[in-house]
């Protein structure tokens, strides 16, 4: 961008933080914690600056285009990573959160940065729809990461990996199970709300595309993911004893749906939403899936 802050700046900062986290797992580095915090904070500052510039350039941002959508998701995940580093300094949570952040930034490079078409719907429903899906997708991602950590920690405990040789300290199984369950519940609620608001948005249109686009691949994959999340959450609520490993597998599968939805959103998002005409001012309700 004009300010000189571009995606490479904050991606590089997060990559440096990740490198410190990885190296810190193999050998003791006295400045590990401060290095991690510094690199992640630097990345977040640059990231915030970049998003701020986007908002200044396109007032409907930060969710006006798939590109912005990915970057906002990455920004939220980086904030969570920084909070985890501060709150749980002895645990290698960055090892999982930072690669996911970088992957989302990578996704933004492939995604279209043209603002999506505006709808003849209220701004309220558009914003609600966009943010619910954003936060819902983030919850699925966090649930997946917590599930992966759970399975890894469980495997290490089973194989009796000794603490002295164990440089990467993960949270306890109990903590991970709690995080995983909460993420699943939150994901089901947020994606469900996002889906419903999307339906409302489409029904409120008065033009030719009014109605639910059941043939649209993004809408179909989102509906499939929502169905899976509801089944998984229902299973968790009905069988509270079936926890830990089973919930980890459920969230892992939900993540597969998420990947599919994101891929389709990146490739075919404009088919569903259309691209705003250059003369039109972009609006905030552009993130409908």
């Amino acid at each position: 961008m004009e300010s000189g802050v571009n995606i490479i700046c904050f991606a590089a900062s997060y990559a440096v933080a990740l490198a410190i986290e990885v190296v810190g797992g193999w050998r003791q580095i006295a400045w590990r914690r401060w290095g991690l915090l510094l690199a992640t904070t630097a990345g977040l500052v640059a990231h915030t600056w970049y998003l701020g510039r986007r908002v200044a350039a396109t007032p409907a941002a930060p969710l006006a285009s798939p590109h912005d959508w990915f970057l906002v998701a990455a920004w939220l995940l980086a904030v969570i990573a920084l909070a985890a580093m501060i709150h749980y300094p002895g645990r290698s949570l960055g090892l999982f959160l930072l690669p996911a952040t970088l992957a989302l930034i990578g996704g933004s490079l492939a995604a279209d940065d043209e603002p999506l078409a505006t709808f003849a719907a209220t701004r309220f429903w558009g914003i609600l729809h966009s943010y619910c899906l954003l936060l819902g997708f983030l919850a699925v991602l966090l649930g997946f990461l917590a599930g992966m950590m759970y399975l890894l920690q469980s495997r290490r405990l089973k194989s009796k990996t000794l603490p002295a040789t164990d440089g990467f300290r993960l949270p306890s199984l109990e903590w991970l199970e709690r995080a995983n369950s909460r993420a699943l519940g939150a994901a089901a609620a947020l994606v469900g709300l996002g889906f419903v608001t999307g339906v409302v948005l489409r029904w409120s249109r008065t033009d030719a595309v009014r109605g639910i686009p059941w043939t649209d691949p993004v809408a179909l994959s989102l509906a499939a993911m929502l169905l899976w999340l509801l089944v998984a959450e229902g299973f968790r609520l009905l069988y509270p004893a079936a926890r830990g490993r089973k919930v980890a597998y459920l969230t892992t599968t939900a993540f597969a749906f998420l990947l599919l939805t994101l891929a389709l959103f990146t490739l075919y998002g404009e088919r569903l939403h259309g691209v705003a005409a250059p003369s039109q001012p972009p609006s905030a309700d552009g993130g409908q899936a």
Partner: peptide
């Protein structure tokens, strides 16, 4: 070792 290094990796 049993409590501080192993049990704490299972229970919070």
């Amino acid at each position: 070792v049993a409590i501080a290094d192993f049990a704490t990796r299972v229970f919070e």
